[in-house]
């Protein structure tokens, strides 16, 4: 049995074929719209027939997503989408399974499932909409809200240390780890495409603006003026440079990264060159930690992409091996297992 979503059938599907007949009901201006539109734009290019897509979500604003996709879908229980997705992949590995989750759904109530699906390397695509707030329950702090954030449930400021989703993914052994942002749909489309094509678990954090409860949380990387100073676009094989004129670069000093000013953007000697295929997570973790440091740029793009055996490959290979060893199960023999005796 093939354990990869099939993409050999030439199909002509258009973006609008993925729209369901349900009215989209996010708040006007919500970053979710851009993510929905971008994904609908990417899917037709993947060559996978529409009936092979399954969207699985938990609970939260983002988790309404499956209702708006004219594919198979389950809107499930808060935090539990990875469990259902795993079951779907093991029942039918020819399906392309997408998990739509948020910072509360995926990292708080569903944290356990998220780390385990990543450690197993189940071949699914996880899109985590991170808005650093609980939206659907109307504005409480989330596990990614910065410490000190004033919300309805933290009127004197949150005292929780936030999670860095990229670090969670790396520590869990995710084989594809990326970050993008709702305002940059071109970048987002490319990241989604790469995530879909990756064999194994793909984890994509999307910085997503909640206009109602946490507007402007990611202004640093979305504001047309500011973003050049703060966004570090990761490109494999290219030096880690940023700034409007690309005159800032990152250098490894001891065990940390340091920003250095470049006289000439073309002269990047000593500047680290991005290697998304680095099997060692230390490098990607260094990049991920930049996010938590003031005065350091915020990386966007693919942190890590390595290929190892997927859970499904191992799962079905083992079944085949057992079949080879024992033959196709014979019920009559099974019933007679152990000691039997005949009574006349």
């Amino acid at each position: 049995m093939a354990t990869q979503p099939s993409n050999t059938i030439p199909v002509k599907i258009r973006k609008q074929d993925f729209s369901s007949d349900q009215e989209v009901r996010w708040c006007p201006g919500c970053g979710d719209y851009a993510i929905l539109a971008t994904l609908k734009r990417v899917l037709p290019d993947l060559g996978i027939p529409r009936e092979k897509y399954v969207f699985v979500s938990g609970i939260g604003c983002s988790s309404r997503f499956p209702y708006y996709m004219n594919t198979y879908g389950i809107h499930s229980i808060h935090g539990r989408a990875p469990t259902i997705a795993t079951g779907i992949r093991l029942a039918n590995p020819e399906l392309s399974v997408w998990i739509i989750t948020g910072d509360g759904d995926g990292l708080s109530i569903g944290g356990n499932h998220l780390i385990h699906i990543m450690r197993r390397n189940v071949n699914v695509n996880i899109i985590l909409f991170n808005n650093e707030i609980y939206g659907l329950t109307k504005g409480q702090y989330s596990p990614t809200s910065p410490k000190g954030q004033v919300t309805k449930s933290s009127p004197y400021g949150s005292i929780d240390n936030p999670f860095n989703p990229i670090k969670v993914a790396l520590a869990s052994g995710a084989t594809f780890v990326a970050r993008t942002v709702d305002r940059d749909t071109k970048h987002m489309a490319e990241v989604f495409r790469q995530a879909a094509q990756h064999k194994g678990v793909s984890f994509v954090e999307v910085y997503q603006n909640c206009v109602i409860f946490n507007d402007g949380a990611f202004r640093e990387v979305t504001d047309p003026q500011e973003k050049w100073e703060h966004a570090l676009y990761l490109e494999h094989g290219k030096p880690l440079v940023f700034g409007k004129e690309k005159k800032k670069g990152l250098k490894l000093t001891g065990f940390h990264l340091e920003v250095v000013e470049l006289e000439d953007p073309e002269q990047t000697d000593g500047i680290l060159v991005h290697d998304q295929f680095n099997p060692d997570t230390a490098y990607a973790t260094l990049l991920a930690e930049l996010t938590d440091k003031p005065d350091m740029p915020i990386p966007l793009g693919i942190f890590r992409s390595i290929e190892t055996e997927t859970y499904e490959e191992a799962f079905f290979r083992q079944i085949e091996e057992v079949k080879k060893m024992k033959g196709e199960g014979d019920l009559k023999q099974l019933m007679l297992t152990g000691d039997t005796w005949k009574v006349d």
């Binding site: 389950i74 539990r80 469990t83 259902i84 795993t86 079951g87 093991l90 029942a91 356990n112 499932h113």
Partner: peptide, 16 residues
């Protein structure tokens, strides 16, 4: 336990 039944239900959705 939650993941156990979640995966089982997911498998049922997909035809096991």
């Amino acid at each position: 336990e939650i993941a156990a039944i979640g995966a089982a239900l997911g498998a049922s959705f997909a035809g096991n």
